[in-house]
Write a protein that binds this DNA or RNA. Structure first.
Lengths: 161, 161
DNA sequence: CATAACCTTTGAGTTAAGTTGAGGGTCAAG
DNA sequence: CTTGACCCTCAACTTAACTCAAAGGTTATG
C-alpha cells in the first residue's frame, strides 16, 4: 500500500506518517524502484497503536523505546514497567490537579465572601495576601513545570519593532 | 529596586522578568536616566502572583488578560468567570486522566493474565486486538490533544544527514 | 585607571509534535 | 503531449515560555 492509502486508513496525515519514519518510529516501510514508500497492511495497526499510546499520555520517544521491531515480540518486562510508571505519573498529575482545583475553588469562595462593610480595594488586599501566603511554597523552590491546559490561545503581540 | 534585586526577591531570573515585560505582562517598571529598570516594591508581589497563577494552570496570555494595571482594581466579573472556567478545565482533564488510567490498568491486567497455554505471540495478538478495538474511538476522530506528562525527555536523534 | 559587578539590547536557540510550501519526479488517462 | 493525481525531499514555520550569548554601557572600589 502507498502512503496515501495508509493515511486514509489510519486517519493520520501523510506528513505525520513521514515524520514518524524520520524520527525512527516507523520501520515497516520499503521503497519501490520509483522511490515511493510501500507499507505492509500491519503498518495501519502500528499507527493505530501509536495514536492510542499517545492518547494515553506517552510521548513519541517513550513509544519508540517500547515499540518492538516485530509486533509479536514485545519487550515484556519493559512494557509492563513503563505502563506502571505511566499510571504513577498520572496519579501524580491527578494529585496536583486536585490541589490546584481546591485552591481555585477556595479562591472563588474567598473573593465572593467579601464582607459587605469593606470596600473593593480592601477586599483585593485581603484576598491577595491570602492567595500568596497560603498553600504555595516559595516560587523560588518550584520544582515541576507541567503545562496543564491552554485552550484559549490568543496569540501574543509581535515583539520586534 | 533594580532588576537584580527583584530577581533575588522573587526567585525568577532576570531574563524571565525582562521577558514578561516584553510581552506586556509587567507594566510596573520605570527607567532611570542611565537606562536601568527600576521597580516599586509591589513588583515582587505581581511576580509572585504570576507564578502562582501559572502553577494553577493559567497561561501567560490568560494572566495578562486578567491582571489589572492597578493591583487593587480587579476586573471582578471576568476574574471569577476565568477561575470558574479553569476549574471546569481541570475537571475535564481529570476525567480524561481517569479514563487513561483505567485503560492502562486494564491493559496491565490483560497482559499479565495470559493463559498459561498460549504462547507469547498469541498473547501479543490477543492483547493487541483488545487494546485497539476497545475503549478508543477511531483515531481519525480524535478531538483533543493535551500533553499530559513527559518527564523522561530523551532527545531524539539528529535528523539531517 | 583597571577591574568587577552590575545593567542594557538583540537575536537566536530550546522542546514536542508536527504542518506547510517550494520545487520537482511518476504515472495513467484522454 | 498534456492534465491531474499521486509521490518525493528538504527547509522553514508553528506554540509557549523561556534561556543564553554577544557586545557593550555604568558604577563602585582599589
Amino acid at each position: 500500500m502507498k502512503i496515501g492509502e495508509l493515511a486514509r486508513r489510519s486517519g493520520l496525515s501523510q506528513s505525520r506518517i513521514r515524520f514518524y519514519e524520520s524520527i525512527g518510529l516507523l520501520n515497516t516501510v520499503e521503497r519501490r524502484p520509483n522511490g515511493y514508500r510501500t507499507y505492509p497492511p500491519e503498518a495501519a495497526l502500528v499507527l493505530d497503536l501509536i495514536a492510542t499510546a499517545q492518547k494515553a499520555g506517552f510521548s513519541l520517544d517513550e513509544i519508540r523505546a517500547l515499540l518492538p521491531p516485530d509486533l509479536e515480540r514485545w519487550e515484556h518486562g519493559a512494557l509492563i514497567e513503563a505502563l506502571r510508571r505511566k499510571v504513577a505519573d498520572i496519579e501524580a498529575l491527578e494529585a496536583r490537579l486536585a490541589h490546584s482545583k481546591r485552591q481555585l475553588v477556595a479562591l472563588v469562595a474567598e473573593i465572593e465572601a467579601r464582607p459587605d462593610d469593606i470596600d473593593c480595594a480592601a477586599n483585593a488586599r485581603r484576598v491577595l495576601s491570602r492567595v500568596l501566603g497560603d498553600g504555595v511554597e516559595s516560587p523560588a523552590l518550584a520544582t515541576g513545570d507541567v503545562r496543564l491546559l491552554g485552550k484559549t490561545g490568543r496569540r501574543r503581540a509581535v515583539r520586534a519593532g
